[in-house]
Amino acid sequence: MAMSEPDIGLALVNIVLLGLLFVVAIAIARLRSLFAIVMLSGIYSLVSAAWYVAVDAVDVGFTEAAVGAGMSTAVLLGAMLLTSRTAKPEKSLRQLGPLLVCVATGIMLIYATVDLPAVGDPNSPANTGVGLTYLRVAWYDTGIENVVTPVLGSYRGFDTLGETTVVFVAGIAVALLLGFGERSLAETIRNEDKSLPKANKKPEAEDGETDS
């Protein structure tokens, strides 16, 4: 890692991956077919997960691959069941407001990165607090090479357990809403659609269906 040539190569890999992300984002904003947008959002998650690994945020990459590429593609497809297959085109004047908000947010974020400490700066807040202690102690405590893993799984194990519970409950709620079970919102809507012609004749049948 001390040589300069792998660093240039790594920077090139980062640039290529970020360029792919940029292209995918533009395509998502321009396309109207919702299915293509779902597929491209899966590609976006895969590329960003690979990029997280390339910049050494392996745990974030894991989460992005599992939630972004795996789970959210299925959730978005389930949401597509409830809507139409293509998005309505917006008037170009109404696109101006979101564009301005995005550009302003981007400028603020870029302005904020100027104040960030350099990578490996010994005087940065991350290195003056307890961070160095973890770096020194973690391997002897747990025997795991990546320091992030013992911090998340061992030192802050209860915190991680709580986060996992929250994500699990949210996943169950989304699954119930979008149609992964018989009592889901999507299934109820579909049953009502099916029973609409019958509902004029027999209103009791629909009641029985939604209750059971």
Binding site: M39, G42, L46, A65, A69, G70, T73, A74, L77
Partner: peptide
């Protein structure tokens, strides 16, 4: 593994 599962879902 994740890629395989999501392709099956699609």
């Amino acid at each position: 593994l994740i890629n395989f599962v999501s392709t099956i879902a699609i």
